[in-house]
Amino acid sequence: MIQLTSFDLSLGALLVGALALTSMRIYPGMARQLLIAALRTAIQLTLIGLVLKVLFANSNLLWVALLSLLMLAVAGREVMARQHRRFTGRWGYGIGAVSMFISSFTIALFALAVVIGNDPWYQPQYAIPLLGMLLGNTMNGISLALDRLTQSAWEQREVIEARLMLGHSEQQAFSVIRQQVFRSGLIPIINAMAAAGIVSLPGMMTGQILAGAPPVEAVKYQILIMFLIAGGAGFGTMAAIHFAVRRLFDDRMRLRLDRLHSNPSSSR
């Protein structure tokens, strides 16, 4: 594999710098966000590279578990930050984090122990990248779905309550929104699977091929990953919808918008 030097990377960074400079004229705030995100990518990836280096050297279940939980904690914060109207209190963080834990961790365990079946199953070289990809994509699905769900509940509160007034259950009153929300959680992975190989070459497969792996082997891994991501995003979205609906309605099936932040806020 051809090694990249710092000079190679700074050439790439020049591109982001040029984009930031140009976008100053259109939307100055965007340029700042772009630079911060680029800086975060560089720092976070460098750090994880160092962490993985140490982790690969001594394959220890405790360390793998700790890193996994850290990744989950950050993903939970990320889901919360992307909500325009998030749930108040612990639920704002909890719904996303618990849903991701349920889907991503279960599916990662299943893939490591049953499908790939390496020994030990928690071998960090497999466990961490796999969980990372699952979490990243599940996070996208869940945050899109939750954002849509809380926003729709807020905007369509009169329709929801009109149905409650007619004696409909919260499941009936929310059925139309639930379909839209489920769709928005699944559309990214459905689009990715539909376009894979024809329009786009998925990142992981491309990485393996760049690293010198035989294309057919890389493809098999990519197909597996796509299926796992579909499961993770789909079941994660279902779980998130389930918890969110339970929180949005109380035991007397009242729509409780007071459990959402009334001031729309979004960090980006």
Binding site: V159, E161, A162, M165, G167, R252, M253, R254
Partner: peptide, 19 residues
């Protein structure tokens, strides 16, 4: 159950909503 209650004690608002 709340659903039974609202069927028997029915509220009609000034503006109707349709889904």
């Amino acid at each position: 159950p709340a659903t039974d209650w609202r069927r028997q004690v029915a509220l009609l608002p000034a503006d109707s909503r349709w889904w």
